[in-house]
Design a protein around this nucleic acid. Sequence first.
DNA 1: CAACGTAAATATACATCGTATATTTACAGG
DNA 2: CCTGTAAATATACGATGTATATTTACGTTG
Lengths: 225, 225
Amino acid sequence: MKYSAQNTKKKPGRPAPDDALTPDAVAEAALRLIDKVGEENFSMRHLGQELRVQAMALYNHFEDKDAILNAVAGLLLSKIKVPQGNGSWQSRVRDVAFNLRKMALQHPNLFRLAMTRPTHPRSALPLTEAFLSALADAGLTADEQATTYHACFLYTRGFCLWEIEELPHSRELQSRELADIADRYPRAAATRRLIVEPDPQQQFEAGLNMILAGVSATRPRPNKK
Amino acid sequence: MKYSAQNTKKKPGRPAPDDALTPDAVAEAALRLIDKVGEENFSMRHLGQELRVQAMALYNHFEDKDAILNAVAGLLLSKIKVPQGNGSWQSRVRDVAFNLRKMALQHPNLFRLAMTRPTHPRSALPLTEAFLSALADAGLTADEQATTYHACFLYTRGFCLWEIEELPHSRELQSRELADIADRYPRAAATRRLIVEPDPQQQFEAGLNMILAGVSATRPRPNKK
DNA sequence: CAACGTAAATATACATCGTATATTTACAGG
DNA sequence: CCTGTAAATATACGATGTATATTTACGTTG
């Protein structure tokens, strides 16, 4: 079911000011389209059609497709709400991580894009800052903050990508194959079920808690706020 | 610089048994090719040329391109050596993680493929088993093993992908942009340097140790071996 | 040993993709 | 009003994955 031609018979040439595209409009439309159809089904022609425009018109506003994807990534990151800190530093770290995961679950087709693009350092800064502000309150040195932030972020991102992209496939794995596996790797097969079957939210929280416990263990007397 | 036609003038028809392709030969060639040129420059025609064969010949041995990529992923995973356990459970977990990272650094163009494809559960089993055997010796319950394994694995994979795919880009970020960043997010900018500049090996180890410390903290009295 | 079915290759073709280039149009500034 | 230019269309090219048709020679069977 290819997207049909829908009789776009527009004359070439400069459009009326109100009908003109803007980079923002292009980026927003691209975001909505990818959200709907996934990145692998997103093409310049497809996006053009969504905007009632030929594909090449988009190149007046963006260098190439890559630039559009970068813009989409930045746009999505800018929409993540970062909680202003209340409560213990642990619960603030958790809040940030939970917000990230919430975005992942709401926009599974956009999450990888948002977390992967080079735009990332720039637009993810509020998020980073929220993480670090919590870790600073834990009394960590700058070095420890860096390591801890990195570990928490990588874990959170990795878990969300796993939950979105791998868990669904894992769940439909044939029991035939599972039996085959269980023969030679009994422990791995059993563990597989313990990872795939339980509530992901709890799994996520348990892993994050483990990291936070490691932080506390390394540095047993944090500053009281 | 497109790969040139190199005068492949072979007659159609069934080849001599010695000249015939095999699925294994195709998968190995694909692995080598992707290792060299990266997944995004890997095409059926390109692979065919490597094997002195038209692209369509490959479809006699694999369903489609996706199936070839799956085979490559499995092939690479099967080549990872898993250390048989010596030393404390912590050092055994570290060994497995280090082996994974070693493979990542040796084959940066193949690592994402290997870690992403659905083949994963099947071929990664020896690796999983090695992780779990160490965690079992730590005295963890099956549930705890599952959570811990998952956290360690996600962290390791996430770190390696970051090191391979993001760190290089981060390092060439313009100082102009950095200054811009430092104004509004001083903490994040400072942390960025602490993450991007130090030795990745030490960073990786520090993060992993943090997780392992969390495990020990949660369960302070492991079984002695 | 000849006939034949079929496995494994080539040959050709198509839709789709990103995008380079050329053309067209209408607004904006002198 | 004239004109330069911004923003659109139109067209075209090279790649890509792969469906389909064709060709060839191996292996089997009479």
